[in-house]
Design a protein around this nucleic acid. Sequence first.
DNA 1: TATGAATGAGACTTCATTCAT
DNA 2: AATGAATGAAGTCTCATTCAT
Lengths: 216, 216, 216, 216
Amino acid sequence: MPKITEAQRETRRQQILDAALRCFSQDGFHNTTTAVIVRESGVSQGTLYLYFATKDEIIVALADDRHQGEAFLSAMAQSEQDPIEGLGLLLELHGQGLDDPRRADLRRVGIQGWAEALRNPTILASVTEGSSLVRKEIVRLIARGQRTGRIRPEIAPEAVARMLIALFRGLTLEVSLGEDTGLANVGPLVEDFIRSTLLTDAARAAHPKIPLTSKE
Amino acid sequence: MPKITEAQRETRRQQILDAALRCFSQDGFHNTTTAVIVRESGVSQGTLYLYFATKDEIIVALADDRHQGEAFLSAMAQSEQDPIEGLGLLLELHGQGLDDPRRADLRRVGIQGWAEALRNPTILASVTEGSSLVRKEIVRLIARGQRTGRIRPEIAPEAVARMLIALFRGLTLEVSLGEDTGLANVGPLVEDFIRSTLLTDAARAAHPKIPLTSKE
Amino acid sequence: MPKITEAQRETRRQQILDAALRCFSQDGFHNTTTAVIVRESGVSQGTLYLYFATKDEIIVALADDRHQGEAFLSAMAQSEQDPIEGLGLLLELHGQGLDDPRRADLRRVGIQGWAEALRNPTILASVTEGSSLVRKEIVRLIARGQRTGRIRPEIAPEAVARMLIALFRGLTLEVSLGEDTGLANVGPLVEDFIRSTLLTDAARAAHPKIPLTSKE
Amino acid sequence: MPKITEAQRETRRQQILDAALRCFSQDGFHNTTTAVIVRESGVSQGTLYLYFATKDEIIVALADDRHQGEAFLSAMAQSEQDPIEGLGLLLELHGQGLDDPRRADLRRVGIQGWAEALRNPTILASVTEGSSLVRKEIVRLIARGQRTGRIRPEIAPEAVARMLIALFRGLTLEVSLGEDTGLANVGPLVEDFIRSTLLTDAARAAHPKIPLTSKE
DNA sequence: TATGAATGAGACTTCATTCAT
DNA sequence: AATGAATGAAGTCTCATTCAT
């Protein structure tokens, strides 16, 4: 029987994960020693292993955190009545995620997660789970739009989903690498793409502007 | 007067890089020991360090190789007379690069390079150099298309370039993670995007189909 | 609150230093691997680095130990009331240090320390600190002797100090190299030197024999 | 049958030894790689091993060079008719050797030779041979002085020799460690020592000043 | 003879993990 | 539960020496 409450335990765990996120973001997963995480999180070397069985498990936990965030965004988009507005909201939220400086560490560690996923099945599962959630949500929204006649029927919803996910992952990378062109906002172009490529002529008339307001 | 010719030296170097590429692809950069690279490449432990000063330098060299490949693709696209066909060729070549099983290792190591670039300025420079080349080529093609009235003038060439690069990076990741949906080819959608979003009405009529034949 | 007390830590540290002293004495600093020190001291490879950051730091610590010993001898000499007896005591103690077989390792490692001091500023500082202490003590004793009229006033105290230090270092080397002539004790000659060269005629009469009893 | 003359061979050998002396003086024997010696001497890696079978043999050769110099000094002293003047000359020559900046490298490498001699019998033999030559010469001079009644008969020649050798070795060390007091010349004190301790009253009257002119 | 590329044993050091307290 | 000292396997890199040309 534990001598600390579940809440205390969860707090400690987050404390470690927060420190790990910062460290991994700065020095990379493999160049961060458990000693540093321990120092940054304020727990002891031994305590770390009361919460995570291995160092690998820490990055797995961070990856899991990440796709929980994605699940949340999907849920929000789903609550939207209009599918096109739902799609716009999804894109907007992800677009904001790209910009938010408070999420810089998450983005950087996310990229490292991709590299790890190539050889760690657990992390791969986590990454895939996250993208899968988003993909399904996009497919659902597109399909709904097609049923209501707003989105061109010949469009393959899966393809759109894959394309949008790939696009956002690529933008995450671009932002994190600091490949700052200082020019040209991609947001309006994505908006343009959706309007011209996905929407039917009728919908295009009804939606003079879909609510994609990402500043990125 | 060296005991070995420059060509022999280059061969040896490639031999090491080839082995390293295979190893890094399989186990990741940080989980590949120099001992394994040495074993795989058939040279001795000491010889490795006659060609690369540190293990890090090997991944830098692989990243450099990579953007040399990108320079080559850009050069090919530039040789095309018609900007739209040039753009199509560029996309096709990159699309083929996504599919080619012989390039699987390159893709996987490329993703690891992204993670390394976050904390290794030399690798970052190499990655950025590669994308920069492609971006400039795309901008050049779009601008040319706009001058000839084939591409809508209100389109921002930089934005298109960033979007396409992000898209292909994202697709590289998708393919490498094996997130295989088994469905829906993105290629036609990209083609559709270009036709609907970029081309002027006149050009769209003239190009009933732009030559984007990527099967991915 | 540390898991081990300061005393336990100091014991461990000495345990390592003792082993290192033996190893360095036998095989030389550069021909002694950390693996051997570890084996001899009974600690693990990792533990060594819990006490010393680098192998170099071990020899620095040994050099420091050495000049702490010299400080002790100086303190003893200073406690003597009569300056000539103090000088005699100092020489006697150092003379005993030359003979003592238990100090053979210290002498041998000391000589290696000289070689290291040529290119390691930290070790140089340690060696210099040690000789400086002794020099100051000799100067103090000589000057005191001059004030009481026992030592010839035209003698330069600094020169005597340098000469005696050089002499003892040279004798340390001779003993350690085993250049054993089996003949002729230097001790009485040093005694003679002091009587004839340093003492005033009056003091020479009062001290028919200064208490220099080194057998070396 | 050699394709180069003995003279050419000797030149090459010296070229290597000169480079090695400089390198060893600067970085120490163990921190000088053969690669550096090769670079400094201008010969190739392979050629080095045509002249010296091992790296150790290089320091042995340097040690041998050294005691050849000592043999030369002894020969000079022996040529002197008067034993006391001979002794003075010997001390003067060694004293000059301490000061000469062109001999700084020799002194530094000599000290490293002491450290090596502790575990390398060949180097030990070389060092011992050098000191032995000097010791014998001093003994011979003292004994001669005793026969002619210039030096006190109760003095042990061996002890004087050992003391003087130890003293000069110690001074070599002091100079090389840069323990510069900026004060007090030891030379006159040594002179004083010889006059007061060794000479008979008669000789002291005859030699108002023995020719010891070392500036060190 | 001379060269310099190649070799591979081995050195130092790090670090994820354990376990007695 | 928490601690932090201890562990030892393993990794990167060096370097004296060799040998085919």
